[in-house]
């Protein structure tokens, strides 16, 4: 057996598609991988134009790609990460992946004869497995990142992430001289509630309160659980009047919400503190401190009320 025959055997056994086209896009080589995966015999494709055999190819893109190989005499690549597949070939994992076609890494190689490029070889590697695992990994990473940001009980932002959001909004407001308001509120007599209904009852109140408030907020507002029964909301582009209005709606909504827990109705209320960014605030912590002071005032002056860090204009 001659070495040429070896190459023929290898090209037919290799788990990579080998497709060679002449410069006018006529297919001149079609290995067994392609025959098997495309379920088309060489006789049916050899001598045919590649665009007739694969009408799904993006023609202009493909021509430009090949022209770069021809003009620059260099190899070129196309990865599944940017373009899931070029050729619509069925893959070998039809059950476990959600795509209909084989994910592919394609390499375009110039083939020269006497220093002149006469053909282009396209190598097609099956990247379905890599694509599958990478997609799974990305999903996992996404949910991990999510878990890192979310409070497990209430499904709103946890304190760490919420503070990061506040820090970002604070510096943005500072830079562009925009408004920024902060609302902090606390469930009234939460300890008593826990003692009366048990911790499950308390948890239920935390969950229901979060849901009620989330429904009152804009998409850009950032709502987080600050501590045990304390919550906080960042309101970008909001002045004192606007924030006081939201705060009052929150107070009223919680006062007016009945929470069903084991055939009992729990009613609760919140005390709310509101602050807005002012020119003395150097750090976002100043904003928290001011809202916290207002919240303390609301608590000490009888609860179930809203207090502001500064007088309304």
């Amino acid at each position: 057996m001659s070495v040429d025959n070896f190459c023929e055997t290898i090209s037919d056994q290799i788990n990579t598609g080998i497709l060679v086209v002449s410069l006018d896009f006529t297919i001149v080589k079609w290995n067994r991988f392609l025959q098997v995966h495309a379920n088309v015999t060489p006789e049916k494709v050899l001598g045919k134009c590649i665009f007739d055999v694969f009408p799904e190819l993006p023609k202009k893109w493909f021509e430009r790609k090949l022209s770069s190989v021809i003009q620059l005499g260099t190899q070129s690549f196309c990865s599944w990460e940017q373009r899931h597949h070029l050729f619509e070939l069925p893959h070998t994992r039809p059950i476990t992946t959600d795509s209909h076609f084989m994910a592919q890494n394609c390499t375009f190689l110039p083939i020269t004869s006497d220093n002149v490029i006469t053909h282009i070889c396209i190598l097609i590697e099956d990247a379905t497995d890599v694509c599958h695992y990478q997609t799974m990994l990305n999903k996992t990473l996404e949910s991990l990142a999510m878990a890192n940001r979310i409070d497990g009980l209430t499904q709103i932002f946890n304190r760490k992430h919420w503070e990061e959001c506040l820090a970002k909004e604070f510096s943005r407001a500072r830079r562009y001289n925009h408004g920024l308001a902060l609302i902090m509120f606390d469930l009234d007599h939460f300890k008593l509630l826990n003692d009366t209904y048990g911790h499950l009852g308390g948890d239920k109140v935390l969950v229901e309160t979060s849901k009620t408030i989330q429904s009152l907020l804009r998409l850009c507002d950032q709502f987080g659980r600050y501590g045990g029964e304390e919550f906080a909301i960042v309101l970008p582009e909001t002045d004192l009047v606007g924030a006081a209005d939201v705060a009052e709606r929150i107070r009223a909504a919680i006062e007016g919400t009945d929470i069903n827990f084991q055939d009992q109705i729990i009613r609760t209320s919140v005390s709310v503190g509101v602050s807005i960014i002012n020119s003395q605030d150097k750090r976002y912590e100043d904003l928290i401190q001011n809202a916290d002071n207002a919240l303390y005032k609301a608590k000490s002056s009888g609860r179930n009320r809203v207090c502001l860090s500064t007088e309304l204009p």
Partner: peptide, 13 residues
Amino acid sequence: IDLSSILTTTFLN
């Protein structure tokens, strides 16, 4: 990616 590959391979070739 396409441009990168062109710049790299042209120079290195």
